[in-house]
């Protein structure tokens, strides 16, 4: 699998990262190298082998349904560039 500069530009846009022309070129080369390595891994036959999600034998811990957090709106809002009446205030977003 190969990757071109347009794909890199699109991914950067989706991730909200601005890349210069030079950075796009560099990133394209890096992606290609990574994907080349993945291609190499693809040569191993993994039919009938379930995906490995973790190398440690632990299961997802479940917590009890108790309210034990929240209730500190001032802390949640502390870093907000702008706030009003307990809300975060952001530039208008409406579709």
């Amino acid at each position: 699998m190969s990757i071109d500069k347009n794909t890199v530009a699109r991914i950067a846009n989706l991730a909200r990262i601005r890349l210069t022309e030079d950075e796009q070129n560099a990133m394209t080369r890096e992606f290609q190298a990574i994907l080349g390595w993945i291609d190499q891994l693809q040569e191993v036959n993994t039919d009938d082998i379930p995906p490995l999600t973790s190398v440690v034998e632990v299961t997802l811990p479940l917590r009890d349904d108790k309210v034990a957090d929240g209730g500190y709106p001032e802390d949640v809002l502390a870093n907000a560039p702008k706030q009003a009446a307990g809300f975060f205030v952001v530039p208008k977003v409406i579709e």
Binding site: K82, A84, V90, P91
Partner: peptide, 11 residues
């Protein structure tokens, strides 16, 4: 979206 003409409020 109705609190201000230029801003949105987030809860």
């Amino acid at each position: 979206h109705d609190q201000s003409p230029t801003e949105s409020y987030i809860d």
